[in-house]
Amino acid sequence: MITPNHVLDAKGLACPMPIVKTKKTMKDLEPGQVLEIQATDKGSTADLQAWAKSTGHEYLGTETEGDTLRHFLRKDGANTVSEGTVIPEITLESFKEKVEANENLTILDVRELDEYEEGHIRGAVHIPLGEVEQRCGELKKDELIYVICHSGRRSELAAQSMAKQGFKQLINVVPGMRDWTGEIV
């Protein structure tokens, strides 16, 4: 059993708020201290794992109690400032115009499977954030890829991970599917 130094209540919050609150809380901890994040957002596991990896913090694991996910992160003192590569963004409105103009687009949807199945953009490739590092080889490194999630935070983390693996043309769609008004399948 992990004993945290601090507990953050992020229950009832949807992406990106658990990450936003975690980031703010982590700044107040000393290196080596453990933060417990209590969340109900199913996507928070992949979100926190990717965020921890991109910032140098250590993801210690997740315990489940009913509908509550208890995530544990250890603060690392060496790399807490680095957020990774800056990924260019496109507004959802501009992206929607490209989709509706039937442009030949490579769209990567990094939401969890249940979110994707509720509705996604026709032709989007689905690779959940937690699988991006292992599966991004399914995409071509020289293609322009539009990365989308629910709000724009997971897609940013996915694009940062892909950039580290040599992908050069990545664009984060912001805010993401939560505000999408176009056709879905």
Rank of each mutant, 00 (worst) to 15 (best):
G166V: 05
N102K: 13
L144W: 01
Y59A: 04
E143S: 12
I19S: 10
T40F: 11
L60T: 08
K27S: 06
I121H: 02
P128R: 10
I107S: 01
P18S: 10
E138R: 07
A163Q: 12
S54C: 12
G77R: 05
M26V: 03
H126I: 05
R153G: 07
T3L: 12
T40R: 08
E30K: 09
G152C: 05
N5I: 00
K27M: 14
T45L: 11
L13I: 08
L113T: 14
A101Q: 04
V81N: 15
G61P: 06
V20H: 13
I121G: 00
R153Y: 12
T85I: 11
C149M: 04
E183C: 02
G61H: 09
A52K: 04
T55Q: 10
V86D: 14
L108V: 04
G166K: 04
E83K: 10
I127D: 04
E138Q: 14
E89R: 13
W51G: 08
E103Y: 00
S155R: 01
L13S: 08
I184P: 01
M162Y: 05
Y146M: 09
K27P: 01
E58G: 05
E93F: 06
G32A: 01
T62S: 03
G123S: 14
I127V: 11
T85R: 13
G56K: 07
G12K: 09
L108P: 00
I127T: 02
A101N: 08
E83D: 12
D9I: 12
K141D: 03
I37K: 08
E143P: 02
D76N: 15
E83I: 11
E143W: 05
G43V: 08
I171A: 07
A78Q: 13
N5T: 03
K27W: 09
K164N: 10
E30V: 01
T3R: 11
M17S: 12
I148M: 07
S82Q: 07
K42S: 13
I127H: 03
K98T: 02
Q49Y: 10
A39P: 04
E117F: 03
M1R: 10
N104T: 03
R153H: 13
Q169W: 02
L108I: 05
I145L: 06
E83Y: 11
G84K: 02
G176C: 11
G32S: 00
E133A: 13
N104K: 13
P128M: 11
L8S: 07
T64S: 05
F72C: 07
S151Y: 05
G166S: 04
C136E: 08
R122H: 09
C15H: 12
S161T: 15
A101R: 02
E133Q: 12
A158C: 11
G152T: 06
R74S: 08
V125P: 02
E143Q: 15
F167I: 09
A52T: 11
C136P: 02
E131H: 04
E100D: 15
A78F: 10
T25A: 15
H57K: 06
A158D: 08
R111W: 06
L48F: 02
